[in-house]
């Protein structure tokens, strides 16, 4: 397409791929003030939630299944603050965080007029896209971890720890429970990475980062809504958010990893399709800003 891309091809095939670009991208994401504030907001939700439960707790235990999932168990074990917070934030906060990152990825650069300068450094467009996506994936894995760690810390302070009761009614030690929580975070990281791939594609379509962010948030909410409509059950297997709640499978005893496969496959399919679409769009378009 241009001299830029041609020069992006390594002059000698043995040249080691430098991680400098990736490191610079990650640093850029990390120092951006809005990202820091967003991460702080994600971490604040479990704290608000735990304090609220501490202040006005007792009546939830009387109502069967009172409150959203895992809320009833919070007062018994601080571990569940992390799970309850993840469950709550999965509905909107986490997708918005990813949408913000994804919106910034390409559309943000284009909006600031820095995209063309970025492309003047000897970096191929495909590599640029790969680095941008790597940044989103890093965010997708970091965000649930931050929520979980913040929830764990505040939960342990306010309610204490101890053996954790799983969904199947069996108890496991705190160490194993932590391992399962890590598994939950990783699974959600994969799910959010799939969302990020869709976001990256949207980001290549526009020069307005806000547009991409809002579009991705709306798609997520729409997917949640469509999931609730029984008449559309033929559509449900294809929905992006369909398997997000599957993280609960990791809290059963014994864990059935087979039950996680559909969620991981679906995420993989989304990543494959929308990353290649982003590549087709981005590598083939003229950069004018």
């Amino acid at each position: 397409m241009s001299a830029v891309e041609v020069s992006g091809v390594p002059a000698t095939p043995v040249r080691r791929v430098s991680t400098r670009f990736l490191r610079s991208e990650l640093r850029l994401i990390a120092v951006r003030r809005r990202n820091q504030v967003g991460l702080a907001a994600l971490a604040a939700v479990p704290i608000v939630l735990a304090v609220a439960m501490k202040v006005a707790a007792p009546d939830t235990s009387d109502r069967p299944g009172g409150g959203p999932d895992f809320f009833a168990q919070i007062t018994g074990n601080g571990f569940f603050v992390a799970l309850a917070a993840l469950g709550v934030e999965l509905g909107l906060f986490l997708p918005i965080a990813i949408a913000m990152l994804a919106g910034d990825a390409v559309a943000g650069e284009a909006n600031q007029g820095t995209l063309r300068y970025l492309l003047t450094v000897p970096v191929g467009r495909t590599r640029l896209l790969a680095v941008k996506y790597a940044g989103i994936v890093a965010g997708a894995f970091l965000a649930p971890l931050v929520v979980a760690v913040s929830g764990l810390v505040i939960g342990l302070i306010l309610f204490g720890g101890g053996d954790v009761t799983l969904l199947s009614g069996t108890q496991v030690g705190f160490g194993e429970a932590l391992l399962r929580l890590l598994g939950v975070c990783l699974f959600l990281g994969v799910c959010l990475s799939a969302l990020g791939a869709l976001g990256l594609f949207l980001s290549t379509l526009t020069e307005q980062p806000m547009g991409a962010t809002i579009a991705l948030t709306m798609l997520t909410v729409a997917s949640f809504v469509l999931q609730q409509i029984p008449q559309l059950d033929w559509l449900h297997p294809y929905l992006l958010t369909r398997h997000w709640q599957d993280f609960g499978e990791l809290l059963r005893d014994p864990v059935s990893f087979d039950a996680l496969t559909p969620g991981l496959l679906s995420a993989g399919a989304y990543i494959l399709v929308f990353l290649s679409a982003a590549w087709a769009r981005f590598a083939g378009r003229d950069i004018t800003s």
Binding site: L272, V273, A277, W279, A280, A283, G284
Partner: peptide, 16 residues
């Protein structure tokens, strides 16, 4: 792909 950028769209279409 370089000479005909539109052909790139075949990749995501095929993936889908």
């Amino acid at each position: 792909f370089r000479s005909r950028p539109a052909l790139r769209w075949l990749v995501p279409a095929a993936a889908a």
